[in-house]
Simulated scan of single mutants.
Amino acid sequence: MLTELLQGIEAGGFLVIQDSCSYSGRHLLKSFINAALNRAEVVHVLGFDVSEEELKDGLRTSDTQRLHIHSAYTDPLGWTERPAFTVHQFRLEDLTDLVKQTPHPKPATLIIDSLSWILRHVTPPAVCKTLHQLRKGGAVRAVIGLLHADMHQRGTVGSVCHLATSLIAVAPGAKGDEAVAKITKRSKFRKVMQDEEIFSLNGDFTVTIHSKRSNPEQNWNDAEEEQVDPTAELTFNLRLSDSELEAKKKLMLPFVFSKEKLATLSQPAFLK
Score class of each variant (00 low, 15 high):
residue 168 I to V: 14
residue 150 D to M: 09
residue 152 H to N: 01
residue 118 I to K: 04
residue 188 K to C: 04
residue 178 E to G: 10
residue 170 V to M: 06
residue 117 W to G: 05
residue 163 L to E: 04
residue 167 L to N: 10
residue 190 R to H: 15
residue 189 F to Q: 10
residue 142 A to C: 12
residue 127 V to M: 02
residue 159 S to N: 13
residue 109 T to R: 15
residue 162 H to C: 05
residue 121 H to Q: 11
residue 137 G to F: 11
residue 152 H to V: 01
residue 150 D to N: 14
residue 145 G to S: 02
residue 132 H to W: 10
residue 114 S to V: 02
residue 156 T to R: 03
residue 141 R to W: 07
residue 155 G to T: 03
residue 138 G to P: 05
residue 123 T to G: 04
residue 180 V to H: 07
residue 193 M to P: 00
residue 133 Q to P: 05
residue 169 A to D: 12
residue 179 A to S: 14
residue 111 I to S: 06
residue 151 M to L: 14
residue 171 A to P: 02
residue 144 I to C: 06
residue 122 V to Q: 13
residue 150 D to E: 10
residue 108 A to M: 02
residue 151 M to C: 12
residue 144 I to G: 01
residue 155 G to M: 13
residue 122 V to C: 09
residue 106 K to G: 01
residue 161 C to R: 12
residue 179 A to N: 09
residue 135 R to V: 01
residue 170 V to W: 06
residue 167 L to H: 11
residue 110 L to D: 00
residue 172 P to C: 01
residue 178 E to K: 11
residue 112 I to A: 08
residue 130 T to H: 06
residue 157 V to I: 13
residue 115 L to C: 04
residue 145 G to T: 00
residue 131 L to T: 08
residue 147 L to G: 06
residue 132 H to C: 10
residue 192 V to K: 14
residue 106 K to P: 00
residue 165 T to V: 12
residue 133 Q to R: 14
residue 187 S to N: 11
residue 158 G to D: 12
residue 108 A to F: 00
residue 170 V to A: 06
residue 170 V to I: 14
residue 178 E to V: 05
residue 170 V to G: 07
residue 125 P to T: 01
residue 191 K to W: 09
residue 136 K to G: 08
residue 120 R to G: 12
residue 112 I to H: 08
residue 172 P to A: 05
residue 133 Q to G: 15
residue 112 I to V: 13
residue 176 G to T: 11
residue 125 P to W: 03
residue 116 S to T: 15
residue 113 D to P: 01
residue 192 V to A: 14
residue 171 A to G: 06
residue 139 A to N: 06
residue 142 A to S: 15
residue 136 K to V: 10
residue 106 K to T: 15
residue 138 G to D: 03
residue 126 A to H: 11
residue 165 T to M: 05
residue 110 L to C: 03
residue 192 V to Q: 07
residue 176 G to V: 03
residue 182 K to P: 01
residue 191 K to L: 09
residue 118 I to N: 01
residue 132 H to A: 12
residue 116 S to Q: 07
residue 138 G to N: 08
residue 139 A to K: 04
residue 115 L to A: 10
residue 125 P to L: 00
residue 179 A to L: 09
residue 147 L to F: 08
residue 178 E to C: 07
residue 179 A to C: 06
residue 145 G to D: 10
residue 132 H to F: 11
residue 168 I to G: 08
residue 127 V to P: 01
residue 161 C to L: 12
residue 160 V to N: 00
residue 189 F to S: 14
residue 147 L to N: 04
residue 133 Q to E: 15
residue 122 V to R: 15
residue 191 K to Q: 15
residue 188 K to A: 15
residue 178 E to T: 15
residue 190 R to F: 11
residue 149 A to E: 13
residue 146 L to N: 14
residue 111 I to H: 12
residue 140 V to M: 05
residue 184 T to I: 04
residue 127 V to T: 03
residue 183 I to C: 03
residue 110 L to G: 02
residue 176 G to C: 00
residue 186 R to F: 11
residue 132 H to M: 14
residue 122 V to N: 07
residue 130 T to G: 04
residue 179 A to V: 03
residue 128 C to N: 09
residue 125 P to R: 02
residue 131 L to W: 03
residue 154 R to L: 12
residue 179 A to H: 08
residue 161 C to T: 15
residue 138 G to Y: 13
residue 174 A to D: 13
residue 135 R to G: 07
residue 179 A to E: 01
residue 117 W to Q: 13
residue 121 H to V: 10
residue 172 P to R: 02
residue 130 T to N: 02
residue 126 A to Q: 15
residue 173 G to I: 08
residue 116 S to L: 13
residue 106 K to Y: 11
